[in-house]
Design a binder for these strands. Structure first.
Length: 305
DNA sequence: AGCTCTTCCTGAAAGC
DNA sequence: TGCTTTCAGGAAGAGC
């Protein structure tokens, strides 16, 4: 399932061939996952692809009206202001591929964006949990504003501050896109294993040292996963149709009953925040069942108001 | 604030 | 063998 490393890999693939291309035509199949399907046909043909970026798990394609291009700065500023962003979330099974028209069409391909070089950008999504929408340039900041921090950009201090104030389980926070953008179930579990933290630990009760370890673990896991072009569990492929390699490095995710690579204890699975959460009961000890703690035990990380 | 449950959807896997 | 049931899960919304 596409999370930050998979989306980053897809974006890098798109970036290699899309910028500079003009969209000639849009053809749609099923559209129930598109916010405003008619708007795609209305606004996209004739636009020029200016830039492809990633925000959390969203692929963002900036489109400028292609007609009058000028090197004058006021004209290019005007083009920027009238730009539209084609935003794509891959959901569980979404795939963006760049194909030649002669390439066979995969089942469940619902969008075709025909380009001026004869190729086409295709969106395939078996379960249609993905999402496609258009965001006008002036509303883009607001759209991005709903998302949390980029996990690879947030500093250790800010991370500790953010998590240290929350009473939610640490796994739930990692998955919350308004806290961190881009981490999903796989990388949350792998990061918690690396930081040796049980998924149901309450963020507020973690020590500063533990929060620092988690911050570092998230960064290291995501960086390593990007290097290996993401994890292919079931459907994920990049823009060329290639699978990722990071699934071979998973230490806990979907390894229930298998021995921990660190201590050989059997990996276990619990449901946290509605999702399967895999962990090693030895390396990631469960939080003490609290309720009657010995009174006034000093808490290193207690937050006073 | 934060938890659980439900909804969306399909295909794989389990159950009979 | 072949049909039916169950389940997974990103995100959003409801209800507690």
């Amino acid at each position: 399932m596409p999370e930050l490393p998979e989306v980053e890999t897809v974006v890098r693939g798109l970036r290699a061939s899309l910028p500079g291309r003009t969209i000639l035509e849009v053809r749609l199949g099923k559209t129930d996952f598109i916010d405003d399907p008619a708007a795609l046909g209305r606004h996209l043909p004739g636009t020029r692809i200016a830039e492809v970026t990633r925000n959390g798990k969203f692929v963002c394609i900036r489109l400028e009206s292609g007609s009058q291009q000028s090197l004058q700065s006021d004209a290019s500023q005007a083009a920027r202001a009238s730009a539209v962003h084609l935003i794509i979330h891959l959901g569980m099974t979404g795939q963006l591929t760049i194909s030649h028209s002669s390439d066979s069409v995969a089942p469940h391909t619902h969008c075709f964006f025909f380009l001026d070089d004869g190729r086409e950008l295709r969106y395939t999504d078996i379960r249609r949990f993905g999402r496609i929408l258009l965001v006008p340039e002036p509303l883009m900041a607001e759209f991005i504003g709903h998302l949390g921090k980029e996990p690879l950009q947030i500093g250790a201090e800010e991370f500790c501050r953010g998590f240290g104030l929350r009473r939610a389980r640490v796994k739930a926070l990692l998955l919350d896109q308004s806290v961190l953008r881009g981490v999903g179930n796989i990388y949350a579990d792998e990061s918690l294993f690396r930081a040796r933290l049980h998924p149901t630990r309450i963020a507020q009760r973690l020590t500063r040292k533990q929060l620092m370890a988690l911050h570092r673990a998230v960064r290291e896991i995501l960086t390593a996963a990007i290097r290996m072009r993401g994890s292919s569990i079931s459907d994920y492929v990049d823009t060329d149709g290639n699978r990722g390699e990071f699934q071979h490095r998973h230490r806990v995710y979907q390894r229930e009953g298998k021995p921990c690579v660190r201590c050989s204890e059997k990996i276990r699975r619990v449901i946290v925040a509605g999702r399967s959460s895999f962990f090693c009961p030895h390396c990631q000890p469960a939080p003490r069942p609290h309720g009657r703690r010995k009174r006034l035990e000093p808490q290193m990380n207690a937050v006073k108001h």
